[in-house]
């Protein structure tokens, strides 16, 4: 069986030649939730950007396959249409683009890229409203410019809304818990859990164990200095909470 995501010997650096990802191997199968935990500055966000196709990173070695297709050869929008979704650590504000306009553009662009029929505006609005309700997002917010003036919690709920609408096959959640109080965290976690399915894989990136109480992973990886230094089950997260990342940082160095 082909893995959903297969990363082999990945090395990536940023402009200026600084090496951030240094020999990463990771396989995510359909239905699995992987947590990637690691200290600040380890390169977790960089990994998420490399997977999503952000320009500005040089891949110096390695391969990445999504359902057997060469992901690195695709533009960011092509990857999204193939099912990659990155929930940003810091969702961007786009003044002048109404949230609903953005959702419609994204949804229909993906459909078009896959050769599927576009959804009519009323049908799409209906679908968005239904999802919004489950995430406590009110209809007014959908009319506002994307993320402009949204609180941290609102932005993360909005990311979850996009994910639920776009129904990706690979979800990469970068520090989804940052900036959330416990109630907001529960709402977002419920939204994510609702998307758990045998057809979908997830990579949940987090610095803290707290999120993993709500989104329980199948596999936990410790990520330090650009690669995975340890892999275990859900209990590894709790162990890390107690011991911290100190040992891995010295180990990696």
């Amino acid at each position: 069986m082909t893995a959903l995501l297969e990363i082999k010997g990945l090395h990536a650096e940023i402009a200026g030649g600084r090496k951030i990802i240094q020999g990463l191997d990771l396989t995510v199968n359909k239905g699995e939730i992987h947590a990637i935990m690691g200290p600040n500055g380890a390169g977790k966000s960089t990994l998420s950007y490399v997977l999503a196709g952000k320009p500005g990173y040089e891949i110096t070695a390695g391969e990445v396959y999504l359902n057997g297709e060469d992901l690195l050869a695709m533009e960011a929008n092509e990857r999204a249409a193939k099912g990659v979704f990155l929930a940003f650590q810091y969702p961007l504000e786009i003044p002048g683009v109404a949230t609903l306009t953005f959702l419609r553009a994204a949804f229909n662009a993906q459909r078009k890229a896959r050769g599927e029929e576009e959804l009519s505006s009323p049908d799409l609005i209906k679908r968005v409203r239904e999802i919004a309700k489950t995430l406590n997002i009110d209809a007014e917010m959908l009319k506002r410019p994307l993320n402009v003036g949204f609180s941290g919690g609102e932005k993360k709920r909005n990311e979850t809304l996009q994910m639920a609408l776009l129904q990706p096959s690979l979800c990469v959640l970068d520090e989804t818990d940052s900036g959330l109080d416990i109630d907001a965290l529960k709402v977002v976690a419920n939204g994510v859990n609702a998307l758990r399915s045998g057809e979908r894989g997830m990579i949940v990136i987090t610095h803290y164990q707290r999120l993993l109480d709500y989104i329980v992973p199948d596999i936990v990886h410790v990520f330090a200095a650009g690669r995975i230094v340890r892999t275990g089950g859900a209990d590894l997260a709790r162990e890390l909470e107690a011991t911290g990342y100190g040992q891995y940082q010295s180990e990696a160095a």
Partner: peptide, 13 residues
């Protein structure tokens, strides 16, 4: 570029 990437990451060409 950051805004452009955000839109592209959602599938918009």
């Amino acid at each position: 570029d950051e805004l452009l990437f955000y839109l592209m990451a959602r599938g918009i060409p």
